[in-house]
Amino acid sequence: MRISMEVNGRGVEVDVEDRTSLADCLRDRLGLTGVHLGCEHGVCGACTVLLDGSSVRSCLLFAVQAAGHRVTTVEGLADGAGQGGLHPVQTAFMACHGLQCGFCTPGLVLTTCELLAEDPAPTAEEVRARLSGNLCRCTGYVKIFEAVDRAAELMRARSGTAAAPAGAAEDTR
């Protein structure tokens, strides 16, 4: 089936089999190999992409279902605005040693992007719960939590709202 969708801001048309997962389509047909397959049954989160801005498992979605939708992969995040052209979440993961082998990283970066878009100052508990659908076997997550905090700071600074003191941000919620 020939489908068209928007991937990382560009319209693409691609022929896929009905049974081809969105993950396989993105990886094999569009060369977006930052979409990683860690389990293919929806648990590990390595294949996370944003579908119309919401995180989804691309292993549990058929490519044909993405027709007419907007898909963002980790390759589409760097917008040139941040340090070295990177998205603040990418910058923060690098700055905080939030990755080791890097296999889970694209999924975690995208999940973090969604979280911070919804809540610019999440609590520690919220971060722990939100990331629990993305398995990382290397880091023990501690430095990932630091990276999420750092990314939130960077994004708040970038959006012009001066980074509020941590306590104050929570008090307003």
Partner: peptide
């Protein structure tokens, strides 16, 4: 020292065997 290996990995440009 910040890691040298991170840039490709955070941008989806790592090259794992399946890639």
């Amino acid at each position: 020292v910040p890691r040298k290996e991170d840039l490709p990995l955070v941008t989806g440009h790592g090259r794992y065997v399946a890639d």
